[in-house]
């Protein structure tokens, strides 16, 4: 009786001690996140706050800002002040660039999905050993230097590039087709840049697909097409949404691709923003443009969160 009581007392004491130890170490552990949070907080989050402030200031003549409140940056996004009678005139130049970029990003996302889904599905249905090779082959371009990859596209589509040289040699054309510095070049470059971003999330979703469901569908006399549209695609929706987002967001803010393949003539949002910090010398306008892009990204992320939290409910 006493021994039992004693041991239970010491046990509970030990448990208490252990809980205490776990608690203090847990509290100490939480501080381990501090360095990372501080670095990102100071050099990542604070700069975003600074551009929010800058967007409400006045541009200094040689770049930078003057500390004087103004909403001109946002007004200038849609309007231009007439130098003679000081009235605001609707100037949709920037808006057009935003819409163009949106269109580029949507087309990129759709085509990447049309090419990426079959690819990811094919990869996911290979035997495991082969699957690893496929994943590595898609992962390499995913992490390869985007500037260099864009340069590779440029070499191919230039007037003296491989495609034109080949077509000239074959006698299909007698003078080179201009492809570089066109909308086509930008679109091609975006597709090339972001295709791996679509394939990888799709693959990780399709890899977990339960093929017993596919078999069940066939047993119920579904055709191949029905199995694809009514079983496989609905089941891989989280991967599709993630892939589309991973392509859409960077495509919308693309900078390198239009810079090299658009030749400064065909702008996208990214180049427009960078221009305000370079030759444009209008930092507040650049900040406002960046924040408008950020708002568009947040809308996309919001749809993503809503979509994925809906999935959790279904199990």
């Amino acid at each position: 009786m006493t021994t039992a009581a004693l041991s239970s007392a010491s046990l509970s004491k030990a448990a208490l001690f252990e809980a205490q130890a776990v608690k203090t170490s847990a509290r100490r552990n939480r501080l381990l996140s501090l360095p990372a949070l501080l670095i990102i907080g100071i050099f990542g989050v604070l700069p975003l706050i600074i551009i929010c402030v800058y967007s409400f200031l006045v541009a200094a003549p040689y770049g930078g800002v003057q500390w004087q409140f103004s909403t001109d940056a946002y007004l200038n996004f849609l309007f231009q002040r007439d130098i003679f009678d000081d009235t605001l005139q609707f100037t949709p130049d920037f808006l057009i660039i935003y819409l163009r970029s949106f269109l580029f990003a949507v087309v990129t996302t759709v085509i990447c999905l049309l090419l990426g889904f079959p690819t990811a599905y094919f990869m996911a249905t290979r035997p495991p050993a082969q699957r690893n090779w496929w994943v590595l082959l898609i992962t390499i371009p995913f992490w390869s230097n985007l500037l260099v990859r864009t340069l590779a596209i440029m070499f191919i589509i230039r007037d003296e590039g491989l495609i034109n040289n080949a077509l000239l040699a074959l006698g299909v054309i007698d003078k080179p087709i201009t492809m570089l510095y066109t909308n086509f070049a930008i679109q091609l470059g975006l597709l090339y840049a972001f295709l791996p971003f679509m394939v990888l999330p799709l693959y990780s979703s399709l890899e977990k697909l339960d093929f017993r469901l596919v078999e069940a569908a066939y047993d119920l006399y579904a055709t191949r097409r029905q199995v694809l549209w009514r079983v496989i695609i609905p089941l891989s929706k989280p991967g599709i949404v993630a892939g589309c987002l991973l392509v859409f967001i960077p495509a919308l803010g693309a900078y390198v691709t239009p810079l090299i393949l658009g030749g400064g003539v065909h702008l996208m949002i990214g180049d427009l923003i960078a221009q305000q910090f370079g030759s444009g010398r209008n930092w507040p306008l650049g900040c406002a443009q960046a924040l408008i892009l950020m708002a568009a990204v947040l809308v996309a992320l919001f749809f993503y969160v809503r979509n994925t939290s809906g999935k959790v409910q279904h199990g």
């Binding site: 949070l37 990102i40 700069p47 975003l48 600074i50 990214g270 930092w283 960046a290 950020m294 992320l301």
Partner: peptide
């Protein structure tokens, strides 16, 4: 905290670029 850590992945690179530029210009100024 998890969101802060992942923030650099969600913000388009060009925005991070101009924000960082503005930040360093500000502390230099």
């Amino acid at each position: 905290a998890f969101m802060v850590i992942n923030l650099p992945l969600m913000v388009p690179e060009i925005i991070t670029a101009v924000a960082t530029l503005s930040f360093f210009a500000l502390i230099a100024g």
